[in-house]
């Protein structure tokens, strides 16, 4: 995953910030349980979001405990523990492994290769627990790679592969919420794919990597932004639509903060960079 789905702390209350932090630390500890320090590096905001959403929906029994974090040895930290945080950790490992494998395949640095082989065993254990999710993740990478090799420029099609992967991961079990979670994950995945393309627009060009936005022949960055922003809005608002159909009451403030505001933070950084560069010209 990409870590695009973060919160905007400015519009979170103090209490909400503490909850977000406790989910973050809880997920970090789950990752550490699975593979020690090298797993912590996989921790990302997208998985924190998944844990929050599923915990808010199912309201599972939750353990809260304080611990001493090696990174912040002076103060006690608060962390949560529940079955969905644990689930999100396994999903995090599965998706990170696939994206790392993809990067190595694309001729990534030796460091990636080493990390990948050190994750092999941990990946197998998580993938063994959730075979369907692991299959969906592998299929997404395969379909995306094939489409990119064929120079497919249809963003709706390209983004749907990430959408399908995430929708599978959002559905932990088949029940009355499945379809809505599916839809929520699908559109969030599409959003993430397009945002990734936007964010990497310049660096992909430099490194001669495939980027669907390159194929559309924009004459400048503001045209490119004018195309991307409404489409991102269309995808994420469908995701919010599906979320609002779910009877989520717990953590709903934090989840809305992420879906309405946090998801735009990386977009805003890139937009600012692109447009100010253009003005200088």
């Amino acid at each position: 995953m990409f870590g695009f789905v973060n919160a905007n702390p400015k519009s979170l209350s103090e209490e909400e910030k503490a909850i977000y932090q406790a989910f973050y630390c809880g997920l970090c500890r789950e990752l550490k349980k699975r593979g020690g320090q090298k797993c912590e590096i996989l921790l990302n905001y997208d998985s924190v979001f998944l844990a929050l959403l599923l915990s808010g929906l199912y309201e599972p029994p939750e353990n809260s405990f304080s611990f001493k974090c090696a990174v912040h040895p002076l103060k006690n930290r608060e962390a949560y523990e529940n079955e969905f945080i644990s689930y999100a950790a396994d999903i995090d490992i599965i998706l990170s492994y696939e994206s790392l494998k993809d990067r190595v395949h694309d001729g990534g640095a030796l460091a990636y290769k080493k990390l990948l082989s050190s994750l092999e065993e941990i990946y197998r254990s998580s993938a063994g627990k959730y075979e369907d999710k692991a299959k969906a993740a592998a299929l997404c990478v395969k379909k995306t790679t094939e489409a990119e090799e064929e120079k497919v420029s249809d963003i709706d099609i390209l983004s749907s592969f990430t959408g399908e992967m995430l929708s599978e991961c959002f559905v932990r079990k088949k029940d009355e919420f499945s379809e809505k979670l599916f839809s929520c994950g699908f559109y969030l995945g599409k959003y993430i794919y397009l945002l990734d393309a936007y964010y990497d627009y310049l660096s992909d060009r430099k490194k001669h990597r495939f980027n669907p936005l390159h194929l559309m022949g924009f004459s400048n960055m503001s045209d490119m932004t004018d195309f991307t922003e409404p489409l991102l809005t269309a995808y994420i608002s469908e995701c919010v639509n599906a979320f609002e159909m779910l009877p989520v009451l717990t953590y709903s403030g934090i989840i809305r903060n992420i879906l309405y505001s946090g998801v735009w933070s990386r977009f805003n950084i890139a937009k600012k960079r692109y447009l100010s560069k253009e003005q200088k010209k």
Binding site: N6, N8, G262, W264, S265, R266
Partner: peptide
Amino acid sequence: AYGNPYGNNSS
């Protein structure tokens, strides 16, 4: 309503 963040501090 939720504000438009510039990720530097948030991320």
